[in-house]
Simulated assay, not measured.
Amino acid sequence: MKVNPYLNFDGKTQEAFNFYRSVFGGEFTANMKMDDAPGTDGLNEEEKNRVMHISLPIGKDTILMGSDIVPSMGHTLDQGNSVYISLHPESRQEADRIFSGLSQGGDVEMPMEDQFWGDYFGSFTDKFGVRWMVNFNEQYV
């Protein structure tokens, strides 16, 4: 089984995924707007331009996916602290690069440091309200 994180935003999906692509690299494998879907004629222009679905491969078996909510369809976004995306890069240098890139403009909870349990670890909330953990442990490379 593969597990892919799926993120929802309130009109900021394109901006967020452009930012994530600037850190992870790669190209979008999907990037559809709401007006690409049938039955969206009644949406206002701003909602028609929102992201219906976007996909960005960020690893061999991992795709970061997302979409915008559509307020006129009754969607709401509740940001919370119950979910983190946990990344496991293959080197300390890559851990530092990812942490530094994704945490720009965000709120660092724990800076990257060697931890008592053996991992090189840090956590933060990015500028879009998404929570991330970065873990590196040489034993698992």
Rank of each mutant, 00 (worst) to 15 (best):
M1V: 15
V3F: 15
F9R: 11
D10V: 01
D10Q: 03
G11A: 03
K12A: 02
K12T: 04
A16V: 07
F19P: 02
R21V: 02
G25R: 05
F28L: 05
F28M: 07
A30K: 06
N31H: 13
M32P: 00
M34C: 07
A37K: 06
D41Q: 09
G42F: 01
E45V: 10
E46M: 09
K48D: 02
R50H: 10
R50S: 05
V51A: 00
H53A: 03
H53Q: 07
I54T: 13
P57A: 08
P57N: 07
P57I: 03
I63R: 03
L64K: 07
S67F: 11
D68W: 09
S72A: 08
H75N: 15
D78V: 14
Q79I: 14
G80L: 06
N81Y: 10
Y84D: 14
H88Q: 15
E90M: 11
R92H: 10
R92A: 12
D96G: 12
D96Q: 15
I98Q: 07
S100T: 13
S103E: 10
G105K: 13
G106L: 10
E113W: 07
F116R: 07
G118S: 03
Y120N: 01
F124C: 02
W132N: 06
M133G: 04
V134M: 03
E138Q: 11
V141D: 08
